[in-house]
Design a protein around this nucleic acid. Structure first.
Lengths: 139, 139
DNA sequence: TCCTACAATGGACTAAGTCCAAGTCAAGTG
DNA sequence: CACTTGACTTGGACTTAGTCCATTGTAGGA
């Protein structure tokens, strides 16, 4: 049922009710939640869970590479459990809706050596912006 | 002397001492400043300028398309006056240093129609992450 | 069952940014 | 040039998102 939970367990994570609940929330199809949204859903399942724990747990999942932090809008970070398959994001500039997308080609390869300034480049994050069909309809 | 200032004037901006100072700060080679850094430098030239005005002015410049907002780290937004030439960013994951880069190819073209979900895609923002030479040396 | 190191709690704290009512002033008009 | 007016600025209170930490609780091994 919970792939995410399985993977975390396999890494020697100490399993607690709180961590299970956070993993379950992220593992649904409710992707791209903010930390507060995760907390709200977690509270529904485990009323006494604290905000600090949710932040800690999300942070650990990010460190373990099981969840990706996305900061597409300028407000809160969002958490994307779809970390096992590389992807990028398409964001509606009006309503903030987010879709996962898979562009052709490898943007990393598009950065020539003379544009790397001696950096060891390890990662690339691409955010497309535009207007979603919904917002376009109500323009 | 101040290209940015010239362009803004040409758009019917009401010119005030505050706006001039903010434009001057951004127009130097001091790129990628946070709003607070802009404010600090502005205060050096015009002691009574307020934080709110700096935020307002930066926001207007962004709206006019003369300045780009960059949120590479998860802290404060940074402001990049180099808006007239499309470019992307290379960020050091350790120290946060930022360089402008110009990748080959057009990432927008790499997003196939069937990955656009009906969005009208107008913009793309690419952030490369890695370790800068400085940080690599002191690893 | 008991221990103990790791985890959770919650409330105070910080950073970054927004809001607003009141005062100020740039620039067009006569 | 003086006047007028609506746009601009101010500063302080407020909000939002997130961090910190001392204390309390507990998972899981011996």
């Amino acid at each position: 049922m919970s792939d995410l939970l399985e993977r975390l367990r396999g890494r020697g994570w100490r399993m607690t009710a709180q961590r299970r609940v956070v993993a379950e929330v992220l593992d649904g199809d409710h992707v791209h939640l903010t930390a507060d949204e995760v907390h709200a859903r977690a509270v529904a399942k485990l009323p006494e869970i604290s905000r600090a724990t949710v932040y800690n747990t999300l942070g650990e999942m990010v460190t373990l590479g099981e969840v990706i932090e996305v900061s597409t809008d300028r407000r809160a970070k969002r958490y994307d459990p779809n970390a096992h398959r590389p992807h990028h994001h398409l964001v509606c500039a009006r309503c903030g809706a987010i879709r996962d997308v898979h562009p052709a080609g490898d943007p990393l390869a598009d950065l020539p050596a003379d544009e790397r300034f001696g950096f060891t480049v390890s990662d690339v994050e691409v955010t497309y912006r535009g207007i979603c069909p919904n917002c376009a309809a109500t323009a």
